[in-house]
Design a binder for these strands. Sequence first.
DNA 1: TTACATGCAAATACTTTGCATATAA
DNA 2: TTATATGCAAAGTATTTGCATGTAA
Lengths: 138, 138
Amino acid sequence: MEQNILKTAELKTTQKRRLLLLLLQKQQRPTTAEELYEKVNPLVAINLSTVYRNLNTLTEKGILSRSISQDGKAYYSLLSQGHGHRLFCTSCNDIISIDSCPLGELQEKLEKETGYRILDHSLEFKGLCPKCLSKMDK
Amino acid sequence: MEQNILKTAELKTTQKRRLLLLLLQKQQRPTTAEELYEKVNPLVAINLSTVYRNLNTLTEKGILSRSISQDGKAYYSLLSQGHGHRLFCTSCNDIISIDSCPLGELQEKLEKETGYRILDHSLEFKGLCPKCLSKMDK
DNA sequence: TTACATGCAAATACTTTGCATATAA
DNA sequence: TTATATGCAAAGTATTTGCATGTAA
């Protein structure tokens, strides 16, 4: 499975790459290099540079998408999981994925108004998750 | 003008703060600390730390808004200029402001679906500006 | 006069890079 | 066998912080 992805991208199938892809697949939300490092390391010793290098390679190959969040960190997710955005809690840092994306129309309108050719966008919501909200009531 | 803003925020009116606010007002787009530093410095010697410290203070006071861009840098703009987003050219780094924001409805829908209380969002478009597009044709 | 603002240097956080070694194909 | 992957240490970039000094009110 991960093997096919890597073969198609003409990348060597290493255990660490497979693990990274596996974890990104399991993960139902965009993930940072640090988080992946913490999860891979107990299973197979890996260097943080290796994590970053692989995330970059996979992003260049179009397998992952990278998005810089308002916390200044890069979040990665499998591109096969489709176009999506983030909603995160400013209190506990919980992150969930948003699947819907209503920006197509706006994007067309903007292209007409500005003359730009728009190639990508990023969208992120922040607020308080239900758990943190209920804690605040008490 | 800048003086009033600062007085209201209970901040001392220094020449550097006035200049920073003045430049942000002139600037019709979100601006980085580095850019402001380059513009203030020829007029009045200023330290980059001072720029950062003031941008932070003004953001905390609700006078500026800070938004982290996909280039990993923080962009600041006067909040009085209203809620807006960025569109930037990946080729020449030109940045323009987008005034319309169609996310209110989506935000409400998301709050219902997720139980989150959404407090803020960030949206950024990237692509190629008209100038860079025409260069590519040649 | 005094609390706040600034400069300077050092520290921090995230990410990248150079080089030697290891390993998939 | 050979091009690619990895580890390790060092460097890079954006930003923050501690401390001494300067300055608006």
